[in-house]
Amino acid sequence: METAVWINARFLPRPVSGVERVARELITALCEKLDENGSVTTAEGRCLNFRLIAPASSNAESPWPNLRLHRQGAGGGHLWEQTSLLAATRGDWLISLCNTGPMLKRRHVLYLHDAQTFAIPQNFTWKFRLWYRLLFSVAGHMSSAILTNSQYSCDELVKRVGLNPGRITPAWLGVEHATRTPPDLGVFAKHQIADTPYLLAVSSVNPNKNFASVLRALELLGPDAPPCVIAGQKYARVFGGSGIDETRVKHVGHVSDAELYALYSRAFCLLFPSFYEGFGLPPVEAMALGCPAIVSNTSVMPEICGDAVLYCDPADPATLVSAIQRLRADPVLRRDLVSRGKERTRHFSWSASAETLLKTLSRAVASRG
């Protein structure tokens, strides 16, 4: 028996940030388990046939040779998901990997990355907050299964959204993408980054990432403070102004994977004092590339990083200063963190995460006949 499984590909034309990264890497790892026609036979003997679907107006192409991209339906964005996508996949299964999908779809495996709009609503515009809260609440209950990126996120979705824990499957993300391409050392000349030790921060500039604490730490360090490089997109439309003082840091904007590899490889350490994360890829990428990390002692960070990083209190910049000073004063500690970090990253695999996705889908299909 063959079962059609559509993958919501509305994300394909967007720049690759957090959720888009997860979607692309999960699909890449999934495709390695499929035959040339995009099919796989489950342990129960059911043939799952995967295909991508995007709006008719989309100019995206499928990056995966064994996954055909179908363009169908009028409109785009959330409206397309709630109307055209719902109609086009009626009777079939759908996978949505970027937090959003048709709210009324039952044969649906939905990936919810965290509960930020419930936990820290003040960091989002009221429209964004209202829409995502509605979507998570309705789609989270209607979908046959929910995937998420950590046990912490699972607990948050149960606590804040009221979802059934029996229908949520957590699976850590992977890190293979961090070393897939050689480092592009041209990024240093391109952005005039001096050949001196620098602190690195990687993410979008939004209040939750807590760059104010980074700037305050630089002030507390005084004239001996190392330079700080921030890599990542800005999303003012969603998060509003961050108030970050860019005279104290160099913001290089969006960088390629190869450029990011280079930035990690020469950084003294990664600073990640985020208030709230569902997973947090940058610390895992840093560990994989031999860059020690200083991260928050809150939310998911202890679950993900274990004893392979130094911790700080995101509400107290003095603890960030202390961790930086400790790392600068103790080269043996820095080498030990590099070693522990590389060992820790053995637990993070996109292939394993894709296997969890496939098993979750198979169980959901079997349960609905």
Rank of each mutant, 00 (worst) to 15 (best):
P302W: 04
F348D: 03
I53E: 14
M142G: 09
N49R: 12
D92N: 03
T148E: 01
S213T: 14
H177G: 01
S349A: 08
V309Y: 02
L199A: 03
A318R: 00
A288N: 11
L361C: 14
R266L: 05
A329T: 11
P102M: 00
R344W: 00
Y261N: 15
K209I: 06
V338Y: 05
L52W: 11
Y152D: 10
T169W: 00
K250I: 07
F11S: 02
G253D: 07
C228E: 09
N149C: 15
K250A: 10
K342Q: 15
V332T: 05
L263D: 08
C154G: 08
L361P: 15
C154V: 03
A119F: 10
W64L: 09
D114T: 07
Y235A: 13
T298W: 04
L327G: 00
G278Y: 03
S349P: 06
V255C: 06
G253T: 00
F128R: 08
F272W: 00
P102G: 04
P226A: 03
V138G: 03
A262C: 02
T117I: 05
W131H: 01
R24T: 11
L199D: 03
T3W: 13
V255S: 01
T125R: 15
Y235T: 12
A201F: 06
G222E: 01
R90T: 05
Y311S: 13
L67Q: 02
L173I: 05
T41Y: 12
E20A: 15
A212N: 07
F279L: 04
G166S: 09
G186A: 15
V187A: 06
A74H: 13
G222V: 09
Y132G: 14
F11T: 08
R90Q: 15
L289Y: 03
A288Q: 12
D92Q: 07
S143Y: 01
E156S: 11
L104A: 12
V187R: 08
H191R: 00
L69K: 06
D336Y: 01
S153C: 04
S153A: 14
E246K: 08
S57Y: 06
P292M: 02
A231M: 03
S265H: 01
P331S: 05
P292Q: 02
Q325K: 13
R14K: 08
H177F: 09
W6G: 12
A352W: 00
A201H: 10
G77Q: 07
E303V: 04
Q116V: 10
E343A: 12
V109K: 04
H347Q: 02
P282L: 10
V22Q: 11
K359H: 15
L270M: 02
A88F: 09
T169Y: 03
R160P: 15
N66M: 11
E343T: 08
L163G: 05
L337C: 13
K127H: 03
P331E: 06
S362P: 01
E343W: 04
L69D: 06
Y235L: 04
F188P: 10
P314R: 01
A87N: 03
I304C: 04
W131Y: 14
V187P: 05
L12W: 14
N37W: 13
S339L: 01
E32L: 12
F50N: 05
R68N: 13
V332M: 06
A225R: 06
S144V: 02
E25G: 10
